[in-house]
């Protein structure tokens, strides 16, 4: 269970999140929508522990542990996965090597042994085929020369292999064609389960046609201003933020 209380986050001297509250129980899928500049990505980065995202007030606890006291890799070890809006290129490092190092590092954090190379190969091939992803992609350097769609598919393979308990997907659906969008949806739906908590950050209703959320929140000006079920997303799609009475300056 993820519990965010009164979270205030400052980036470059400017307060972006201004007292955000959110609880995600295991088994739930939440979607956060909101106008540009509302602080959606800031929320994702603050939870994951990126440098430069200064927490000035509030708390983030995950399964009772203080997430804010941990380094980003420790948070990953605790089961957090962040699907990036702009996945990063790492030249010369194959996807395979990258993911195996990451998985084994997480396993060591949890006190498990490294996964044997053969078992890892089987696992990653299985996960790639489930998502209909060409295994050749796994041999290429991480995200180097990948199209936007390939990068997002790659995020989904990583998520499937790492099998996180808490997944935050930061606009993983933006800029995707319908096939890639389906891969992303498939990835999320496969992860979905009674012991998983999922938070999707999205601009569009489109993804929610394929992954039906339990809750939809609207984030504006650094706070969650409205919460509902999937119908809220449809209403938003029909009326727009202004139509719902939400402006950039909601605060």
């Amino acid at each position: 269970m993820l519990e965010i209380k009164n979270l205030h986050v400052t980036v470059g001297g400017k307060e972006i999140l201004k007292g955000l509250n959110l609880v995600i129980n295991d088994g739930e899928v939440h979607a956060i929508m909101g106008p540009n500049g509302a602080g959606k990505s800031t929320l994702a980065y603050a939870i994951a522990g990126k440098d430069g995202y200064e927490i000035t007030q509030g708390s983030v606890t995950y399964n009772g542990k203080d997430m804010l006291a941990m380094s980003p890799d420790e948070r990953a070890g605790e089961g957090l996965f962040l699907g990036f809006q702009y996945p990063v290129e790492i030249p010369g490092v194959s996807n395979m090597t990258f993911l195996r190092s990451a998985l084994n590092s997480q396993r060591r954090y949890r006190g498990d042994k490294d996964m044997a190379a053969v078992d890892f190969l089987k696992l990653i091939r299985l996960r790639a085929s489930e998502l209909n992803i060409d295994p050749e992609m796994l041999k290429r350097p991480v995200n180097v020369g990948f199209s936007g769609g390939e990068k997002k598919r790659n995020e989904m393979v990583q998520m499937a292999v790492l099998d996180p308990h808490l997944a935050i997907l930061d606009e993983t659906d933006s800029g995707l064609d319908i096939d890639a969008l389906k891969v992303v949806a498939e990835g999320i739906n496969r992860l979905r389960g009674s012991d998983k908590a999922i938070l999707m950050i999205t601009h569009y209703q489109r993804l929610l046609d394929y992954v039906v959320p339990d809750f939809v929140h609207i984030l504006a000006a650094g706070r969650i201003v409205k919460t509902g079920n999937k119908d809220l997303a449809l209403e938003l799609e029909a009326k727009g933020y202004v139509g719902l009475g939400i402006t950039e300056n909601a605060a």
């Binding site: 980003p72 957090l80 490092v93 090597t97 190092s101 990451a102 590092s105 954090y109 790492l162």
Partner: peptide
Amino acid sequence: QLFYCQQRGLEVEDSVALI
């Protein structure tokens, strides 16, 4: 790059080594 690696679970020094 460092944050991406760390988010996937790699410690900062392992991330540097990998890159």
